[in-house]
Amino acid sequence: MSRLEERYRFVLRLLPAAYRQEWEDDMVAAFLDSMDTGDSETTAYVTDYGRPSLSEVASIVSLAVRLRLGGADAPPRSYAWGQAARLATLMAMLTHAVMVTASIAVTLWLSGKIAWLPAPAPEWALIPPGSIWHTAWDLAGYAWLPAYIALVLGHRRVAQAVALLAVVPPAITTAVQQAGDVPLSVSPWAMLLIDVVLLLAMAAFHHGAPPVPRRPWLLALPIGILLVPVPLFTIQATTPALRLVDWPGLSCAAVTAAMVIHLTVRVSRRRPRTLPWSLALTLLAVATLALRTATLLDYSDQAQHTTLATIASVQAIAVLAVGVPLAVIAIRALRRLPSIPTVAPRPTTPT
Rank of each mutant, 00 (worst) to 15 (best):
Q302H: 13
T173P: 06
W124G: 07
T173W: 12
R292H: 14
L275Y: 00
A140T: 15
A161V: 03
K113E: 11
T342E: 10
V230D: 04
T310M: 10
A220Y: 07
A294W: 00
R214V: 14
R271Y: 04
L199E: 08
V182F: 07
T306W: 10
A179T: 08
F10Q: 14
W23D: 03
P338G: 00
E5K: 08
T43Q: 02
A280S: 00
H134P: 09
A58P: 13
P169L: 00
L291R: 09
I104T: 14
T295Q: 03
Y8D: 00
Q304N: 12
M202E: 00
P231G: 03
S313Y: 01
I104F: 15
L15C: 06
Q177F: 12
T295I: 10
A190W: 00
L139G: 08
A330D: 01
H96L: 14
L218V: 07
P345S: 01
L63Y: 11
A309R: 09
I114G: 05
A257I: 12
L69E: 01
S55D: 13
D195F: 09
I329P: 10
V186F: 05
V328M: 04
A166T: 06
P169D: 01
V228G: 13
L244I: 11
A140W: 01
W137R: 09
P129M: 00
L308R: 07
Q315K: 08
R335P: 13
R336I: 04
V319H: 05
Q160K: 08
R156Y: 08
I60W: 13
R336Y: 07
L244A: 13
A316H: 06
M35C: 14
W277Y: 13
W81L: 13
Q83T: 07
Q178C: 06
P169N: 03
V322L: 09
L110Q: 05
W23S: 07
P222T: 09
S187E: 14
A327V: 09
A97Q: 01
L281D: 03
P188A: 00
L320S: 13
L227H: 11
A204D: 00
H155A: 12
A318I: 05
V100T: 07
P248L: 01
S59F: 12
T306M: 04
Q21Y: 06
V196K: 02
L94P: 00
S34W: 01
E6S: 15
A290P: 00
T274V: 06
A294H: 02
I235D: 02
A88Y: 01
S59A: 10
R13L: 08
L281N: 06
M27H: 03
H134D: 15
V61L: 11
R7W: 05
A204K: 02
L296A: 14
I60H: 15
A72D: 14
A163R: 03
A64C: 11
L63Q: 15
A150L: 05
G38C: 01
R9Q: 03
H134A: 12
P120E: 04
D36G: 04
L326P: 14
Q160P: 03
Y19R: 08
P341E: 01
E24N: 02
Y19S: 09
A175D: 07
P231A: 05
L87G: 11
L54S: 13
R266F: 10
R9W: 05
L165W: 11
R86W: 03
L165I: 15
A115M: 08
A136N: 08
M202G: 06
A84P: 00
V158A: 15
D39Q: 10
S251N: 14
Y49A: 13
M202F: 05
